[in-house]
């Protein structure tokens, strides 16, 4: 079996184009229950979206990874039932309230545990595995050794982000609106969302642009560089990582398609013959050609040793 290549999709057209380019799975949903999605697929459209993915041989996962408030709970069981009826292959969750609702409303639904920055060890994953969860999404701040050890020690599928930006700060405060108000600007007339190209520059780090935006779920600060683990794929594949995620947020569809194609080629080449696998610079060229020159491609935390 090949290693899964997964990407979030914000529309049925994107499902079609990403699955067509070689993604084995798509992550879809809306901002009521999912955070930082590239677009919204409404509950009423889930059936069509899941069918579209399945027709193209891709799995469809439902993004419900947000931290929830009381008033958001009542709509959850119906949403999960709709996802199950649509034939979705799994739901991702971070808040235990979603786990509770799946148990009650859609007990046959597979669950993926995604708590972003705090999915850091295999024992925590085992806690969820014993509660029926089939996959752990690892924090992007783990290094290669930790990823391998996590997979080796666990009894659960492991998903790792291989490409794109990462969220590095999430607040439920409306920090952009607050700053506009502080400056006395009429920001209520201004769109503060992800398409506006706003970024932060920390005073001591003039070369790093941190994308920032505000939506229904608060303020999001994103990494200044894009992870690109294409050259390091054998390390992850040998470790037995089950799913490789491409983050499409704040990228053009053409860029995301190029990234999918390149990773697809590399994954397929490795699976054909791991022993003979050699990295081909040509795989990286289409990504580089579309890469924002202000954003570096980096190995993220793959080779880092953090202190504390």
């Amino acid at each position: 079996m090949t290693t899964e290549l997964l990407i979030a999709a914000g529309s049925i057209d994107q499902i079609r184009s990403y699955a067509g380019a070689g993604a084995n799975a798509v992550l879809i949903g809306d901002s009521r229950f999912g955070a930082r999605l590239p677009g919204s697929i409404a509950e009423a459209d889930l059936k069509e979206a899941v069918a579209c993915a399945h027709d193209l041989g891709a799995r469809a996962y439902i993004a419900a990874g947000k931290l929830l408030r009381n008033h958001e709970l009542p709509a959850l069981p119906g949403y999960l039932r709709a996802a199950a009826e649509a034939g979705a292959d799994a739901v991702t969750f971070g808040d235990p309230a979603v786990w509770m609702a799946v148990r009650d409303a859609a007990p046959a639904m597979a669950m993926h545990w995604n708590v972003e920055m705090t999915g850091t060890n295999s024992a925590a994953a085992a806690f969820w595995s014993r509660r029926g969860v089939s996959r752990a999404v690892l924090a992007r701040e783990l290094n290669g050794e930790e990823i391998a050890d996590f997979k080796r020690s666990g009894t659960i599928e492991v998903q790792v982000q291989v490409h794109g930006m990462t969220n590095i700060y999430h607040s439920q405060r409306n920090l952009l609106q607050s700053y506009m108000d502080y400056l006395g600007r009429e920001a209520s007339l201004v769109d503060l969302g992800p398409s506006e190209g706003r970024f932060l520059i920390e005073a001591e780090r003039p070369d790093e642009r941190l994308p920032v935006y505000e939506d229904d779920n608060g303020t999001h600060v994103m990494s200044a560089d894009d992870i690109c683990l294409l050259e390091a794929l054998p390390e992850l594949l040998e470790a037995g990582v089950d799913s490789l995620y491409i983050e499409p947020l704040l990228k053009s569809e053409a860029y995301n398609v190029a990234a999918i194609r390149s990773y697809r080629r590399a994954i397929d080449a490795w699976h054909r013959d791991p022993g003979a696998y050699e990295f081909d610079e040509e795989w990286l060229a289409p990504i580089r050609a579309l890469q924002d020159p202000g954003r570096e491609l980096s190995f993220g935390f793959l080779y880092k040793e953090q202190v504390y």
Binding site: E141, Y169, H170, Q172, E202, A224, F301, K304, Q306, Y308
Partner: peptide, 23 residues
């Protein structure tokens, strides 16, 4: 924390210090 607790890795990115382990 002005972030959601645990959902901030600014320190990790700026200084390689792991915020969720006390850094």
């Amino acid at each position: 924390c002005s972030s959601v607790s645990g959902r901030c890795v600014l320190s990790n990115h700026f200084t390689d210090r792991d915020s969720n382990r006390g850094g």
